[in-house]
Every structure is written in C-alpha cells, then in structure tokens.
Amino acid sequence: MARYQRWLQAGVFYLLVALSGSLLPGTYYVTLLNLIGLHIIIVLGLNLLMGYAGQISLGHAAFFGLGAYTSGILTATYKVDPLLALLAGLLLSTLVAVIVGIPALKLKGYYLAMATLGFGIIVAIAFQQMDWLTGGPSGFMGIPPFRFLGWRFQTPAAKFFLVWALVGLILFLSLNIVDSRIGRALRAIHDSETAALAMGVDAQRLKLLIFVVSALYASLAGSLLAHTVNFIAPSSFGFMFSIKLVTMVVVGGMASIWGSLLGAAVLTVLPELLAVFHDLEVVIFGLILMVVMIFLPRGLVRGLLDLWELRRRKKQGR
C-alpha cells in the first residue's frame, strides 16, 4: 500500500516540477530549477550517508568539484565525448572516495567530520592551484553542452529535461536502496554498530560502499553542472558549499528522502530571495541557519509538525 502511495507522491512531484519548468517565464527560473535539481542529487546521496548510515561528511563539495572539473576539462580541452567524460569523473570520484574513505571511516563523530573537512579543503586548494589544468581561481570556461545518442542538450529546456530526468533516476534508486537489505543494514549500523556487527553486518565495508555511492551522486551532479552552466570556478566547491550541503540535509530532515528535496530547494532558493538585501544577504543567511537549527533541530518538516503537535496538546490540556 505504502509503496503505491510513494510512487503517487513521486508522480505528483514530477508533474509540479515539469509544470513550473514549462510555465515559468524566462531562462532565470529554469536555471534556478536546474540548480535545485543538481543540489537534490548531491543531497540525496549525502542523506544516505548521514541520515541512514550515520556518518558525517564536511567535504562533499570536493566530489561535486571532481565531477565538474573532470567533465569540463576532458570535453573542452581534450574534446572527449561528454558521456565518457562523465563516466571518467565517476571513476575518479570512486577512486578518491575509496582512498579517503578507508582510513577516514574508521574515525567516529567529530573526528570523521574533521578528516572530511580537511580532505575537502585540500581538493578545493588543488582546483585553485593547478591553473594549467583548471584555469585557477578565475575559473574554467567553454564547456560544451551534453551530448547523448545524437541529442544535444543546449537550450534551457533541454538542459532542464536532462537534469530532472537524472533527478528522477537518482530519486528512484535512493528510494529503493533505503527500502532494501542494504538500507536496513545501514540504519542498523546507525542505531548500534555493535549489534549490527554481531548480526553479521560488515559495517566497515557498508560504510565505505555508501560513502562511494554518495561521492558518485555528487560527481554526477558536478558533471551535469559543467554541462548546464558551461563555466565552473573553484569557489563553488569549497568548505562553505560542503557546509551548505550538510545544512540542506539537516534542514530537510535526516533520513528523510522527501525532506532532502525540500532542504535542497529551500537552501538553493533562499540566497536568490535574499539577493534583494544586497550586503545584508550574508547576515540574514547566517541568521536563518542558526535560528532553524536552534528551534527546529530535526529539520523543517518534522520540526514544524512537532511544534504543531505541541500546540495541539497545550490546547487539549486546557
């Protein structure tokens, strides 16, 4: 029963996205919707890692960047087919995730946070410093649009279709993973690693597996970013973006797939809305982060539900 309801939800959600994509005027909104889609892809992976397996990463912007730069450099400088470049990005991200993940995932809590933070910053610095390859701080330009089976995704509408088709695919995969033997084992590790081990769950291997999956999602989003905005700069892949990703997960609600969609959307749109405040933008953004985390630590959806429940009980009490 619950399963059909879930697919129904997905259907309605898609209809809304498609409608807004085609009805909203101008390319600005389509570009914004695409950006939301890319962030959703990363956040879905990060939520598998944080919300389900219970492992934090403060360095996921690095994988986003690895995908973006691999796709950008291979297609623009070396004229490689975009699909091959995307796959190369996934391969590189897998490799890096395994090399970093094996020692890092032995750490717990804050120590894992510190290690992933350090990793993310090192990669961001590399993007800036390897200017012979990446164009350095001023960015990398001239990335061609994505091509696939003779299709060229050049117009905003085509890009919108490409991004949201992949969001759908990733959403489908993630819902399935959560609801499977693997997803169950991940949640078990989160609740009690000792008991999970005693039940025969190879916790270390599974944590690494899901770390790699989340890196792959981020890398895919990075490749898509390169082909949709055609220009990338290292400032998009730094420490602050990693924190923003974690915030999207928490604001949406840990271990909530649908919450991830909301968290990504809200935190992508928010800076755009705040842009009217000019210099105040940063101040208001910081303030909102703090206030939401202080008063709704379980995320927007669950937090508001909790508040509503509290009010209802107070009323009944009288």
């Binding site: 944080m50 934090i56 924190i243 974690v246 928490v250 940063v282 953004f285 303030l287 982060l289």
Partner: peptide, 13 residues
C-alpha cells in the same frame, strides 16, 4: 551536526 551548523551560521553572521 546541528551544533556544527549553528556555529558555522554564527560565523557567517
């Protein structure tokens, strides 16, 4: 995790 975000938010502010 929430405390990390709170202090980062504080820093941004």
């Amino acid at each position: 995790i929430s405390l990390i975000i709170i202090t980062v938010g504080g820093g941004v502010l």
